[in-house]
Design a protein around this nucleic acid. Structure first.
Lengths: 197, 197
DNA sequence: TCTCTGATGTGACCATCGGTCACTTTCTGA
DNA sequence: TCAGAAAGTGACCGATGGTCACATCAGAGA
């Protein structure tokens, strides 16, 4: 179906994206220049802008792809939870998948803050394809919440605690382990999501 | 004591810093250029580098000053707490002082992430003069912790939740109110800091 | 009062950045 | 075969953080 030109174009995009993933992954978003990405892949800088309108746009595409991968390794398990605590455990298994991608969790954080000062980028990033979404979390726990605490708020508390932990890690603070944050977050969710007696 | 030259130099620094505080406060750290800061204060760009070695250095100085102000409005009350819950309440009064400085809490976040990728800047920022410190928090709650959960970890959980909330706010997510985060954080601290029965 | 020294102030200059565009090369379909 | 479209190129643009040779000025010693 695809013509030789289209094939070539997609091959170039793959090469540039591979180069970008490698460089972003080692140097971060801001510290990696477009020229470095193209040089490393053996192209001229202009080629980059044939395929993407901006560095941000390529990065968003990488984020989307990475989150798809994360979800692929975890998503099949999310519906089987019997209660809120188990649902939270499955959610934190997913979050641990992200943390395991050592460099990238810090780079997501970097890009998130970068996007916060840009209206349209911020709107894009708030979509669930590009980020942990309060809404997605809410859908996962909704059936198990017996209190009148909104499921969305449980999701928001969890993502806040998770991203706050990422900041600590990015700064090299070793006070908290992931396991401890996980336990605290789950306790918090169970406490607020269970009807008080 | 100070010669007229020293006087002049300090006056210039004050003017440049005032200009910087105003511009950072409205446009953020990255989006404010050194040339803008000096222009707005009526100096040439070179003058800036007579007084500071970098844009980062000036910003650190501003952060230090601002945290000193925050502490000044709150610090006198911290020792009076009767129990862990009350100590946490006082700590969150302090955190609310920071949140109340609407733009700046977002800008601290921006600079924190910016500093995370720079070894020496990161080390500096981890000092308590420039940041919420797990250690300072720990000292405030230590006397009221009856479980064997480390006070430092209580501090870290709190700052993580707080800074995670700042990310949500920076992205314009309105799911959580500050009051709700405060309540969750205090519950979390009381739960983990109180001996289980 | 004059002069020398060192601190303050200046703006042209530098390398680098994200992004643009006129141009060349390569491919496609009639 | 050949015209037009798409892919690839690199000089160029304006803006950035930072530098530096030079100008200006305050103040101590003569």
């Amino acid at each position: 179906m695809a013509t030789k030109q289209q094939e070539k174009s997609q091959q170039t995009m793959r090469e540039l994206m591979g180069s970008a993933i490698e460089l972003f992954g080692t140097k971060g978003f801001a510290s990696t220049s477009v020229a470095e990405i193209t040089d490393h892949a053996g192209y001229a800088k202009g080629s980059f802008y044939r395929h993407w309108n901006s560095k941000d746009e390529l990065f968003l595409q990488i984020v989307e792809q990475k989150f798809k991968e994360y979800r692929a390794t975890r998503h099949d398990r999310v519906q089987k939870a019997a209660d809120l605590r188990e649902a939270m455990g499955i959610i934190w298994d997913f979050l641990e998948t992200i943390v395991a991608d050592r460099n990238w969790s810090a780079i997501f954080l970097e890009f998130t803050i970068h996007a916060a000062t840009n209206e349209s980028l911020r709107r894009l990033l708030n979509q669930s394809d590009y980020r942990l979404s309060d809404r997605v979390f809410a859908d996962l726990v909704r059936d198990h919440v017996t209190s009148d605490f909104l499921p969305e708020k449980i999701g928001a508390l969890n993502t806040a605690l998770f991203e706050g932990f990422l900041i600590h890690r990015a700064l090299g603070t070793e006070t908290l382990s992931l396991a401890e944050v996980r336990e605290a977050a789950i306790d918090l969710a169970v406490k607020s999501g269970t009807r008080r007696d």
